[in-house]
Simulated scan of single mutants.
Amino acid sequence: MARPFKQGIDYFPFDVELLSDRKLRRPKNKYGYLASVIYLALLCLIYKDKGYYLDYSEDVREDIQLDVLEFLQGKFQPTTETVGEVIEDLVACGLFSRDLFSKNIISSHRLQCTYYKATADRKAVNIDWNKWLLKETEMRELCSRHIILNNFINRPKNEVNPPNKTVNQSNNTQSKLNKSKQKESKESKPAAAAYFDNTELNQLFLEYLDIRKVIKAANTERAVTLLLNKLKPYDDAVKKEAIEAAIMGSWKSVYPESIVKNSKGKKAKTSGEVQISDDRKKIYEELDEQDEAWIWAEENRE
């Protein structure tokens, strides 16, 4: 009798920096230990089942949330609603693919790399290319003799991301690929440079805009302009701290004037934490509501 086909994996490497990932900061700040445990629970469920993704469609969503709750059994077990909110925040902060999540799929580039390496010796692996995030060049670097890579190259041309005609690309093909990358780069630059010249600061602001979407704050042109005007008078260091504080607090607005500085203009602490008092946080939460009402009024003004 043939050996039963195995899709998932029995174990996965636990990177020592897995739970110190900067992307996990905001969910941990909001939900505490729940964010870390739910993140690990999802990885276990993904690797155990399909290996590289988890179906999170509406008909199985509650079952997934209940499966996650089994990792959190105890006196202070959260509700399925809380689990769902944490999962959405894990996606919003970039730990899982936002594009796939919009299609009710939970996966990430990082976990697919892990799965690819873990299945390098297998003779057969089933992959749905609509859910696959790794590019051919990435797979070649990880393992050039993988069955997944072979199937990727020889998959039907009418599928997503049609394969190259040959395994070894010609100079002409490589030239076209380079031009395509340059075109993508040029197309993406305006969006990335639209707010700040500082790449790191701009990326942080884009992350904050994603957070605003999660908390149901509209990122209209007027709303974004008002946010940028609040940050404009300050230097990049203050802007960065203000945006990080807004991300960690899930605020609808930014408050650069609140950043506490010592007499020399340096951070009061070197740990990277933004210095904002609890009283100030309560005030800013109230200001969030006022700012949102003001933005709404500005948007509807003739």
Score class of each variant (00 low, 15 high):
2 A>R: 13
5 F>T: 12
9 I>S: 04
15 D>G: 01
17 E>S: 15
17 E>I: 07
19 L>T: 03
23 K>V: 01
23 K>N: 06
29 N>C: 09
30 K>M: 10
38 I>L: 03
42 L>N: 00
44 C>I: 09
44 C>Q: 11
45 L>W: 05
46 I>P: 00
46 I>Y: 02
52 Y>D: 03
56 Y>E: 01
56 Y>L: 05
57 S>Q: 13
58 E>S: 14
67 D>W: 07
68 V>P: 04
69 L>P: 02
69 L>F: 05
70 E>M: 11
70 E>P: 00
72 L>S: 04
72 L>Y: 05
73 Q>T: 11
76 F>C: 07
76 F>R: 13
77 Q>F: 01
79 T>M: 06
80 T>S: 12
87 I>E: 03
87 I>P: 00
91 V>P: 01
91 V>M: 02
99 D>Y: 09
99 D>K: 12
101 F>I: 04
102 S>E: 12
102 S>F: 06
105 I>G: 02
107 S>Q: 04
107 S>V: 02
108 S>G: 07
109 H>P: 00
116 Y>P: 01
129 W>K: 02
130 N>E: 10
130 N>V: 03
130 N>S: 05
137 T>I: 14
139 M>S: 04
145 R>D: 11
145 R>H: 13
146 H>D: 05
152 F>A: 03
156 P>F: 04
158 N>W: 14
158 N>A: 09
168 N>S: 13
170 S>I: 05
172 N>W: 13
174 Q>F: 06
178 N>L: 15
180 S>H: 14
180 S>P: 00
181 K>S: 09
188 S>P: 00
190 P>A: 06
191 A>N: 08
191 A>K: 13
193 A>D: 15
194 A>H: 07
197 D>F: 10
198 N>F: 05
198 N>T: 07
198 N>V: 07
203 Q>V: 10
203 Q>P: 00
203 Q>A: 15
203 Q>W: 08
204 L>P: 01
209 L>G: 01
210 D>N: 14
211 I>N: 05
211 I>Y: 08
215 I>A: 02
233 P>W: 09
233 P>M: 08
233 P>C: 08
235 D>W: 08
241 E>T: 04
248 M>K: 11
249 G>Y: 14
253 S>L: 07
255 Y>K: 03
258 S>T: 14
259 I>H: 03
261 K>M: 15
262 N>W: 02
263 S>M: 13
264 K>R: 13
266 K>N: 12
271 S>N: 13
272 G>T: 00
273 E>D: 12
274 V>W: 06
276 I>W: 06
276 I>V: 14
277 S>C: 02
278 D>Q: 13
279 D>E: 15
280 R>W: 10
283 I>K: 14
287 L>W: 15
287 L>A: 10
291 D>L: 08
293 A>G: 01
293 A>S: 13
294 W>L: 15
299 E>C: 08
301 R>M: 10
